[in-house]
């Protein structure tokens, strides 16, 4: 059932112009900023690409996921599924998988930068592999947050804004924590700090577990939010 939802979501999403527009905007901005970084540094290194791409994903994923539940709730197609009855979990997981896979497609052309750098210089391949793995895991977590935001409202703009706001808070969770007691605990929630490890060429299982936990927690909450619609 999850697979059927995934296939439907991919078909519906990619039959609209949204992922193409979002993907083009993502690559255009990433390309300009990445080239700028290369010029400033004067080195064929890929590491600066990852925080930029990660930050752009904060806006990309909530836009890709905003319609997942909000649009279905607004049009009434969600009611048809719940009346069958389809349990919330396969719906949530199918929609999350579709958003995650779509974000990987949007992200994929950025790998060309690694290829171009390899042509012009001799960059270390380790950070490239770990960096893209980190971006993939970040996208999984962001897709979870986006699906949760969409499950909590019937308005796509509200879902997108709530999703962006939530992931921005998580991205900058480390800011100012050095001066606060127990700041280290809050800083550990920072998405950007977790991504920094991957961009540096290291794969820490704690970071992998963190991204997976954010995604899983959001999906659990989203399934609950869908179920709670009955209580309204």
């Amino acid at each position: 059932m999850t697979l059927a939802v995934l296939r439907k979501e991919l078909a519906v999403l990619w039959s609209s112009s949204l992922p193409y527009v979002v993907g083009a905007a993502f690559q255009a901005v990433l390309g300009v900023l990445a080239v700028n970084q290369l010029e400033v540094r004067g080195q064929a290194v890929i590491q600066p690409l990852f925080p930029i791409a990660g930050f752009l994903l904060l806006f990309t994923l909530p836009v890709l996921t905003m319609r997942s539940f909000a649009e279905e709730a607004r049009t009434g197609t969600l009611d048809l599924l719940l009346a069958i009855p389809v349990a919330p979990r396969p719906l949530v997981v199918g929609k999350w998988l579709a958003a995650w896979l779509s974000s990987l497609v949007v992200l994929a052309p950025a790998a060309l930068v690694a290829g171009l750098l390899a042509m012009w210089g001799d960059p270390d391949p380790g950070p490239a592999v770990s960096g893209f793995l980190g971006l993939s895991l970040l996208a999984a977590a962001l897709a979870g947050v986006g699906v949760l935001a969409s499950a909590c409202t019937s308005s796509q703009p509200v879902a997108a804004m709530a999703g962006v706001f939530a992931v921005l808070v998580l991205w900058f969770a480390h800011a100012g924590t050095a001066t606060v007691e127990a700041g280290g605990l809050v800083a550990a929630l920072s998405l950007s700090e977790r991504l920094r490890t991957f961009a540096g060429g290291a794969i820490d299982t704690a970071d992998v577990a963190y991204f997976a936990t954010v995604a899983a927690a959001c999906l659990g909450a989203a399934a609950l939010a869908v179920d709670l619609r009955r209580w309204r």
């Binding site: 059932m1 059927a4 519906v12 039959s15 609209s16 049009t75 069958i84 389809v86």
Partner: peptide, 20 residues
């Protein structure tokens, strides 16, 4: 008020419902 998924064909939509 019936709504389906605009991007799917009628047959694809019904196949999806059948799977559900």
């Amino acid at each position: 008020v019936f709504a389906a998924y605009d991007g799917l064909s009628v047959r694809a939509y019904l196949r999806f419902v059948a799977r559900m």
